[in-house]
Design a protein around this nucleic acid. Structure first.
Length: 566
RNA sequence: GUGCCCGUAGCUCAGCUGGAUAGAGCGUUUGACUACGAAUCAAAAGGCCGCAGGUUCGAAUCCUGCCGGGCACGCCA
């Protein structure tokens, strides 16, 4: 990964004219060698070999002789077919450590998204269903993408598109009327609604008329039947209160809570607009948009009974969001199982002539499985997020009791560490991969985990409490292999954010932070800070403060807190 | 059946737009707390990168086929 632009641009300047390539080409060809001993940047000579019809090794060697001495680089050396650049260590330390300390919490931010808005649709739990760990993925990936885009300078709009409308509510109402218990609803509302939901689907298998009954209630709900609306309102309030409690534990916030029901009054207009464009056709009693030309199944906008569907509401929501925020990007953080659905949705928007659909993007993530099978709300095989959170926090609390019994605010730190471990466990891998939920894995706080990173951060804070950064430090003293390795990795932070933003993959930030913590730990075990000679000590204090800053900044992009003690 | 995604060490996964000896963590074995926190560090063992072709100076990475797993495919969301 190419880090500090400064050095990169200097190489481009040095090579332009020396090689028959455009500056852009040179810039694109620059690589990072596999290890620091081989330099910071490498310029591969294979293309030149073709042009000059000579061995790339020879070309690299010739270039090494021709490149003029430069204050940015300690030396430039041919290594096989590569021309490798070794950055001047004190220059590197000045550019990175100095810059980090100057910018503080702003280090890593950019103005890439200046003046642009990105709308993020994430979390979106369904009311009437408990908050399962399936929704955890959308929640924390979305939350992290929000923070990453904000760091890139975008104005972010986080929307929790609550699943608070649809046939499922008709079913829930029907279930409540059959088996609902007012007392249970008062005592443990979420649990009771969950049981009703599961029971409905179980009984509906034997008695298909139940399904019709549920659909009937949803139709009444859409038609404004006061009784149905009142029940719906009640279920919604109960669920929302519960969701807010979970979000508080997770430390996740939203700018808007526009759920599906928010768009109710606009749905007719949407369908009318589709119709006016001649895109609406009736098929098997339902109203659809034909997508044969696009090679996809049709998109249903109204059922036979006239009630709307998910797509009707999503279509409306997209248009509303565009009108309201004129977004440069709209990201839908939704499971990979809805890939086809989003392709259909976007295809309909395109047919409607909304060019801005090009800016809409489905950000898929893999499914969570349990014991090898799919987790299903309906079958009741769901792991409750709340339970997972509690377990993780309990474990963190136990470890604290054992390792650091005198720690102040144990409870708060236990939450930060337990929740952090959970979040990191999800964000550190490519989001597209399916994950098999495994308690042992979730409860492992060693190795490549959030606590590992938080621990490095806490250790640094511990040193800095004993001796704050001293003014007048000389960063050019940071030149041993450990100081150098740590400095070099710190400089790569902005690139890690940029890449995470481009790809909408927070895992690049997560992986990067592991590298930083690892490099800090090596340094820590090899180089004393407090007991170093005064000048070295001052420089090292500055270095670890920079490392602390990067760890804290990076963790915050993942939505993970960085306690100063743990 | 058709389409999309995944397949790297015993397990869980990295591997940047194709490039220099394929890397971590967990687990296993062995060392390091009379230096700033051992939730740590150091070291060892462990891999025909699913299989077979192709493109290329060069393929874990790109293309094709096959195998294995997942997901989706009209009145759920």
């Amino acid at each position: 990964m190419i880090e500090m632009k400064l050095f990169q641009e200097q190489i481009v300047r040095l090579l332009t004219g020396l090689v028959p390539l455009e500056p852009e080409q040179i810039r694109a060809d620059l690589e990072s060698p596999p290890s620091l001993e081989m330099g910071n940047y490498a310029f591969p000579c294979f293309k030149l070999a073709k042009i000059h019809r000579a061995a790339p090794q020879k070309i690299a060697a010739d270039l090494a002789d021709k490149v003029p001495a430069d204050p940015f680089f300690e030396r430039v050396e041919a290594m096989g077919p590569y021309l490798n650049f070794f950055v001047d260590k004190s220059m590197l330390a000045g550019c990175t450590v100095g810059e980090i300390l100057r910018q503080g919490a702003d280090f890593g931010k950019s103005d890439e998204g200046q003046g642009k808005t990105v709308v993020l649709d994430f979390s979106a739990p369904n009311i009437a269903k408990p908050f399962g760990i399936g929704h955890l993925r959308s929640t924390i990936i979305g939350n992290s993408l929000y923070r990453i885009h904000a760091a890139l300078g975008y104005k972010c709009v986080g929307i929790n598109y609550i699943g608070d409308w649809g046939t499922q509510f008709g079913k829930l109402i029907a279930a409540y009327l059959h088996w609902g218990d007012e007392e249970l609803l008062q005592k443990d509302p979420i649990q009771h609604l969950y049981e009703l939901y599961v029971r409905f689907h179980r009984e509906a298998e034997a008695d298909p008329s139940l399904g019709d009954e549920g659909r009937g209630w949803f139709k009444k709900l859409e038609d404004g039947d006061p009784y149905a609306v009142a029940l719906w309102q009640r279920f919604r309030d109960i669920s929302l209160a519960e969701f807010k409690r979970v979000y508080a534990r997770l430390g996740v916030e939203f700018d808007y809570w526009h759920g599906e029901s928010f768009y109710n009054k606009m749905l007719d207009d949407t369908v009318a607009a589709v119709d006016a464009l001649g895109l609406l056709e009736q098929s098997q009693g339902a109203w659809i948009v034909n997508l044969e030309e696009e090679g996809m199944p049709p998109c249903l906008l109204r059922k036979q009974d006239g009630a709307t569907l998910y797509a009707t509401r999503d279509l409306t929501a997209a248009i509303y969001r565009h009108n309201t925020w004129q977004f440069a990007k709209a990201l839908y953080v939704v499971g990979v199982d809805q890939t086809l659905y989003f392709r259909q949705l976007f295809a309909v928007l395109k047919k409607m002539g909304h060019q801005w659909v090009e800016n809409c993007q489905h950000i898929p993530f893999g499914m969570i499985r349990f014991n090898g099978g799919k987790m299903s709300t309906r079958r009741g095989s769901l792991v409750f997020l709340d339970d997972v959170l509690s377990e993780a926090i309990d474990l963190a609390r136990e470890i604290i009791a054992e390792k650091n019994p005198d720690l102040p605010n144990k409870e708060e730190v236990a939450r930060q560490v337990g929740v952090g471990a959970l979040i990191f466990g999800d964000l550190c891998n490519d989001r597209i991969k399916d994950v098999d939920f495994d308690w042992d894995q979730v409860m492992d706080f060693s190795g490549e985990t959030a606590p590992y990173i938080q621990y490095a951060h806490a250790r640094i804070c511990s040193i800095l409490r004993k001796a704050p950064v001293e003014p007048g430090f000389n960063l050019s003293l940071l030149d041993n292999e450990y100081e150098y390795a740590l400095t070099a990795v710190l400089g790569k932070y902005p690139a890690a954010i940029a890449r995470a933003g481009e790809t909408c993959k927070p895992s690049f930030v997560a992986r990067y932070l592991i590298d930083v913590a690892k490099e800090f730990n090596r340094f820590y075990h090899q180089c004393p800070v407090l007991n170093a000679p005064p000048a070295v000590r001052a420089a090292r204090l500055a270095l670890i403060d920079a490392a602390r800053q990067v760890l804290a900044n990076g963790l915050s992009l993942l939505g993970i807190e960085a306690p100063e003690e743990m």
